[in-house]
Simulated assay, not measured.
Amino acid sequence: MKKILITGAAGFLGSHLSDRFVKEGYKVIGMDNFITGDMKNISHLKNNPNFEFINHDVTEYIKIEGDLDYILHFASPASPIDYLKIPIQTLKVGSLGTHNLLGLAKAKKARMLIASTSEVYGDPLVHPQTEDYYGNVNTIGPRGVYDEAKRFQESITMAYHRFHGLETRIVRIFNTYGPRMRLNDGRVIPAFMGQALRGEDLTVFGDGSQTRSFCYVDDQVEGIYRLLLSDYVEPVNIGNPHEISIKDFAEEIIKLTGTNQKIIYKDLPVNDPMQRQPDITLAKKLLGWEPKVDRAEGMKITYNYFKNLTEDELYKSEHKDFTSYINK
């Protein structure tokens, strides 16, 4: 039985990846310190003999007993609310955390995949974004703590590959959605869903012409799974290339939820990307991968998940913090 360590296992993507690798017959070790993760995301795995959980901060020394075949590094704050509240921790998990895990992978002779992001492209001047685009990032802006953590993460990973011969993989994740997203995490889908379910008007920043491309979580996990088992070491975009403006998406949410809220407009946040669309030519060619779940289907599933949240979760005061960053 292959053994895999998944950091950030109690988070949105980490928990879905834990499910997938347990299903595929792996022994999964989940690791999280709950700075943004939630135990409820993995509670269903508690009694599974092929899942073990370790409460640990990856920026501290990591010790795993026995052999280890793979490492997925998904520990990181990933939303504007999080990385604006905890900027130092965000930088540390991308630098110290990645360094610790690369050292562990070297010691165990394990293959390591890191979760990078479309944020390495910044506010792109190339559209759609291809893997050979170097990006347009403000290193000292408010979003720089996340963007630069991910860019450094890619650099040190490639350094370990080139200098130590470590088997590494890099996935550049574009906007992903689905069940287990945190309603208060500041990203566009949970922000719009929360506002609609609370009977509030939907907040769009700027004129709403900025675009995003949303990938359903099952498709994202499939792409990551295939990349891990591939022979390709350089970054690969995994996301849905179907682009939509934020204004049009807000109108879709109002229609989906059957609410009669208005759309209200506020000033655009600093360095908010105006376009976000992956070029997935490489993923199609290398992995035979492309998204299968269309947005209408995925959004219905996601809406049903949010509808079943408790009132405490829905009206938590934290939901309204950092609203100027909801359109990530």
Rank of each mutant, 00 (worst) to 15 (best):
179 P>N: 08
182 R>W: 10
185 D>E: 13
185 D>V: 09
177 Y>P: 15
177 Y>W: 10
173 I>T: 06
162 R>K: 02
148 E>P: 01
152 F>E: 12
181 M>K: 01
152 F>C: 12
168 T>A: 03
176 T>E: 04
154 E>K: 06
159 A>Q: 10
185 D>T: 08
182 R>F: 14
150 K>C: 13
177 Y>D: 06
156 I>S: 05
182 R>S: 13
186 G>Y: 04
163 F>S: 05
165 G>Q: 00
162 R>M: 03
177 Y>A: 05
161 H>R: 07
170 I>D: 07
173 I>M: 14
174 F>D: 06
168 T>G: 03
153 Q>V: 04
149 A>M: 11
166 L>K: 01
179 P>E: 12
176 T>Q: 08
173 I>E: 06
152 F>V: 11
177 Y>C: 10
149 A>K: 08
155 S>I: 14
148 E>Y: 09
148 E>M: 15
167 E>P: 00
176 T>G: 05
155 S>F: 11
187 R>F: 08
161 H>Y: 03
162 R>F: 00
163 F>N: 11
183 L>M: 14
174 F>P: 02
168 T>Q: 01
157 T>Q: 02
182 R>V: 09
154 E>F: 08
169 R>W: 04
172 R>C: 09
181 M>Q: 13
171 V>G: 03
159 A>W: 09
149 A>S: 15
169 R>E: 01
156 I>M: 14
185 D>H: 10
167 E>T: 01
182 R>M: 14
167 E>G: 01
173 I>Y: 05
167 E>W: 00
158 M>F: 10
183 L>T: 14
178 G>Y: 05
156 I>Y: 07
186 G>H: 05
159 A>D: 12
168 T>H: 02
155 S>P: 02
150 K>G: 12
170 I>S: 07
159 A>H: 07
159 A>F: 11
155 S>Q: 07
166 L>Y: 00
184 N>L: 10
169 R>D: 01
186 G>M: 10
172 R>Q: 09
169 R>K: 13
152 F>Q: 08
169 R>V: 02
154 E>T: 09
157 T>C: 09
150 K>Y: 12
158 M>K: 12
149 A>F: 07
186 G>I: 13
157 T>K: 06
161 H>P: 00
